[in-house]
Design a protein around this nucleic acid. Structure first.
Lengths: 346, 346
DNA sequence: CTGTTAGCGCCTTCAG
DNA sequence: CTGAAGGCGCTAACAG
């Protein structure tokens, strides 16, 4: 038969090692993986041979046999966004320490692509999934990963009926902080630049804003809340509308940096002086927040923590396989600078 | 033998499809992959069976057999950095369109980790590599990937003696633009915040700065160029030194955004008014550049293009396998705002 | 045009 | 404690 496959690239298969050590392949495997009982001498011989030959086991073959790939699929709507990039890094670090690799997929905000990504990942037999969903339905999600056995932890944007857990931000706390601070400055006409309502964070922040406004007795005509996509342009557009209102807001809460930057840009256009003519605070504290003009008052948090926590929960699910739903909330805190009207620092 | 492996998760192997269609496995394989001659009827039957059973081929098994994984390794010093995140996205997009997956590794700026990452990737038999090196030696690189057969394209930071190609920015052009513009404003005492000299971009920008200063007749006492790591903190530190000089610069060129932000922070500390008391321009135009105070004059480019171009070159190398070294330069352009001293826009 | 056979590299049950 | 054998799921020679 002598089939001619492309010649091996890197030397030394397990069989080679076994031969060189004068034992069977199964023994070599046992020695290298520390499995089963085994005489010390044999083990030493195998290990020596493996090192001498520069043996590197093939994860492919191993995975095919064991049905474990030590690979985790990571799906985000946009890797280039600072938030997801940081989350990715956090997850990467934690997973790598645990011996897992990450296979990345960018859904580009598209549900169809996200499903495609999930299917691909499942085909690759990933051991687990970390996903910041772009908004697939639970049914579709189940259909794509349901029976694969790969546990899934959602990041930031959650499908409550699917997966084994989720990590989200303390959205409500953050909004409370923002609204209360603005109320402290005496603002009653507070507008909200809300994110997409199909996403957990968008929804939670929106709801929390409403609740906080209610609780602190702010006025809240519905024309003051504007729903936008998470983009600077959308923020710019909606802010223009807000500023053109007959009775414009005296303060704006932006649900994300992008939205905040859009608002800032709109103010520039109009020649509005911040914070005197309009106060602005954002959920998300970008690393350049102190360098903007005016320096931004914002709710900050560590985005890499959501990736890290997610990875930790996932590892738990992949290893222990407990039954309870795994949840984590990443804490947030208020960073007071000048855009809110405080004389403050920086 | 009846060995009891974990039960299959997702249904239908190729064998199942073949059985269901009443043909042999090899025929089924041929039908599904469109390989070889084959009667239309048979092909249709197989395809029908495959669909009916929801057959999904196992990339693992396929790769083991064909020695092709359709996976590309992507190695960066820091995924969370906007530049690399964007490059990653660019590469992702191009590779995915071509049917490739990306396996991501973050070297965390460490040479040891980078080597480990490369080895892992090679073990996984990636078909190609996209790497922004943290500074491994060519010898070490060769030892890790050399004989794996996986072509490597370097991004931004290049090992000239290794890999099949590289994509870099038009560093020299960018520096020329910056220095010339500053000279146009009459500055003669121009300082440079240079990046690490072990990296291509750091070196090229440094050299280009020197050349441009020379050519345009600027003074250039060596105390005016400071080498730093690519971080805001390093930029801050070195800028403090610069500003404390007996004869401080009247203008600063920062080799990257981070460095520029550091300088901005240093100016804030000192209460220096930009651009009147000091002009500042940077290589890298961040998306929030217009919102800083003062709005930043900078050299801009599309970072995702370096990923995209890199992916394109790599695809070429993986498929065609031509011999010539593949090179690409991503164009840059000057964005004039106010920090240089122009009355300008924004 | 199609089936048979062999094997990618590894792990694991079973027998000794 | 160790070896032999079989197979994860797929593809490629080689015959018919």
């Amino acid at each position: 038969m002598s089939e001619q496959i492309t010649p091996r690239r890197r030397g030394a298969t397990l069989a080679d090692v076994a031969a060189s050590a004068g034992v069977s392949a199964s023994t070599a495997s046992r020695a290298l993986n520390g499995r089963g009982e085994l005489s010390a001498a044999t083990r030493a011989a195998v290990i020596e041979a493996a090192e001498r030959l520069g043996f590197r086991p093939s994860p492919l073959a191993r995975s095919l046999r064991t049905r474990q790939t030590y690979t985790v699929g990571f799906v985000v709507p946009d890797v280039a966004s600072p938030f997801y990039a940081a989350a990715l890094k956090g997850a990467q670090g934690a997973l790598e320490s645990a011996g897992y690799r990450v296979m990345l997929m960018d859904s580009e905000q598209s549900v169809a692509r996200e499903l495609e990504a999930l299917r691909t990942l499942v085909d690759h037999q990933v051991d687990g999934l970390l996903v910041a969903t772009a908004g697939v339905s639970e049914a579709a999600f189940e259909e794509a990963v349901g029976d694969s056995g790969a546990p899934c932890v959602f990041l930031d944007s959650v499908l409550t009926g699917a997966g084994v857990g989720a990590v989200t931000l303390e959205n409500a706390t953050g909004m409370d902080l923002l609204v209360e601070h603005l109320r402290g400055h005496g603002h009653a006409q507070i507008a909200l630049l809300a994110g997409p309502q199909r996403e957990t964070s968008g929804r939670e922040r929106h709801a929390a804003f409403l609740a906080a406004a209610e609780r602190t007795g702010a006025e809240r005509p519905s024309e003051l809340v504007r729903v936008c996509e998470w983009s600077k342009d959308a923020g710019l557009e909606r802010s223009r509308e807000l500023l053109a209102l007959e009775r414009p807001p005296t303060a704006v809460v932006a649900s994300s940096v992008e939205l905040g930057l859009g608002c800032l840009a709109a103010c520039r256009e109009r020649g509005l002086a911040l914070p005197d003519e309009l106060a602005l605070v954002t959920f998300d504290d970008p690393y350049f927040g102190a360098l903007l003009e005016p320096a931004l008052t914002a709710v900050g948090y560590d985005p890499s923590e959501v990736g890290r926590e997610g990875a930790l929960l996932l590892l738990e699910a992949m290893q222990g396989g407990g039954s309870a739903r795994l949840e984590a909330r990443i804490p947030v805190s208020l960073v007071v600078r000048r855009s809110c009207g405080c004389a403050g620092v920086s």
